[in-house]
Design a protein around this nucleic acid. Structure first.
Lengths: 123, 123
DNA sequence: AGATACCGGTATCGAATGTATACCGTCGCA
DNA sequence: TGCGACGGTATACATTCGATACCGGTATCT
């Protein structure tokens, strides 16, 4: 059988999945965990510009969706590790393609923006 | 030369590109235009649940980024067509992979949510 | 003893973004 | 005259986002 779900359907759960993937920081978190587990502070440093709140929310949501696991190793100072699950690792594949597309086409898009966004001299 | 851009950099333009891709409706618009140009109303009907405002904004942004072209054929009733550019079509490739991943893994994610989201009996 | 730093987060607040709904002008048609 | 098609806007509201500050507990430095 082929596609059991159709992203265009509005009532379709795949909408929800796509929404999570597009959720602003998910892509970065997945990419950051590509090479192994990381701690909260490591992630925060690696994903430049993310706030702790956003990071917490992203990680919680991804955990709820089974994309990663949170392991609290206790002790003090606290030690918490985040690692991709198999599901999360499988997502890595298509996301890597997207990232590469983004990195490859930055000049095209910036050029297009120059062209369209600039023509607006004041008054 | 390899990657000239690094998505993790925060100051890096590829951030902006990724942000546009993740922009909630962009994925659907690109997918909808996969098989040829469409009119505004067609798109609105095809992408179930999108509001005209959201559609307008999505299309304008994508046009500004050179992902699609808007052609006003004038006349009455108005006739406007939206079509992917080469750049937009190239984006189709990685996005198709993401869509397929989403459609394929819906059950996994829904199951994970059951498991984690349910444990919350009132009071 | 006191001050400070590390770690993994929360709390709070204002700004930005997204959504829902209603409406617009022009034309053709009955 | 009244209605619908088309391609959007306008308005009001809800949700989410981001910046900043702060917390508890321990270890370390002075």
């Amino acid at each position: 059988m082929g596609k059991a779900y159709n992203v265009m359907a509005a009532t379709c759960p795949s909408r929800v999945v796509l929404h999570r993937i597009g959720a602003r920081w998910t892509v970065f978190a997945v990419n950051a965990l590509e090479h192994g587990p990381m701690r909260f502070t490591e992630l925060k440093a690696h994903i430049r510009g993310i706030t702790p709140k956003a990071l917490t929310e992203t990680l919680r949501a991804m955990e709820a969706d089974g994309l990663l696991v949170r392991t609290d190793l206790g002790g003090n100072p606290p030690h918490v590790e985040y690692a991709l699950t198999d599901l999360g690792r499988s997502l890595l594949v298509p996301l890597r393609a997207v990232r590469q597309w983004a990195e490859a086409h930055v000049p095209d898009i910036l050029a297009a923006r120059e062209r369209s966004g600039d023509p607006e001299p004041a008054t």
